[in-house]
Amino acid sequence: MIELTDLTKRYGDKTAVDHLTVTVRSGTVTGFLGPNGSGKSTTLRLILGLNAPSSGAVTVDGHPFTDRPRGLRHVGALLDAQDIHGGRSAVAHLKSLAVSNRIPLRRVGEVLEEVGLAEAGRKRIGGYSLGMKQRLGIAGALLGDPPVLLFDEPLNGLDPEGVRWVREMFQRLAKEGRTVFVSSHLMSEMEHTAERLVVIGRGHLIADETLAEFSRRGSQATVLVRAPEAAALAAILTAEGADVQPADSDGDAGGLTVVGLTAPKIGELAWRNNIMLAELATQNASLEKAFMELTADAVEYAAGEAR
């Protein structure tokens, strides 16, 4: 469990984290969302005591992390895959971490195996691809088998297979009762990864709730409908009070994006008016939308406040 209490971090006159009070629970994957520059990475650095807060406090499982003589058995963190000296091999890097925390050296081989770097372990890290560095960072986070795990944009640079593997791993870690806190600036990444969301904008807390609760905050779901007689259908749906736009992705097949009517209702209207439908689908974009709308609000709000 991670508890942030009124946490604030200023860099000069720039407030990166602004009176943030959040509890990140154990046993679930918590997504940490916010647009670029909203203070996610700063918050994670504050949790680890790498940066000192300007005010407020943060504890991990009830203790400030900086009170721990050794950290790897308490928190595993991947902040930035590049936060590593490129001149060493992955094995040397992990060995140096393991000995400092009195973690048995066999763990080095185990975590390298787990992240799929067993082959490349003796090569210089400087020659690794971004995805390989990301995997090495995850290996480092797992080394001490910690109850709390922090990941800053862990999906960056991973291939689809890697993304799936990471998601499954997060869910497994959470099921084991651990606290898993994962940042991203893309809602789509969190949608299939997290059960809870902490959303910030300009360092302010915007939301701290389950994924389902969050999606209800956004505007109504949109429905994609495709019909040969698109123009006629559009007129009917507009008459029913819906907001109808041409589906922008492909101009060819008479696609419409409808907001304000549910898919069954649209189907019923089409059937009654003898219009054939080629496709009818509720779009799962409401999370993304909710995220965009809420963070856009926060940005405007913060900008107004700063004047």
Partner: peptide, 14 residues
């Protein structure tokens, strides 16, 4: 200069 220090201090907070 490499950022390694953050990995080091996350492993040894003192």
């Amino acid at each position: 200069s490499t950022g390694q220090v953050r990995t080091t201090f996350a492993a040894v907070p003192k």
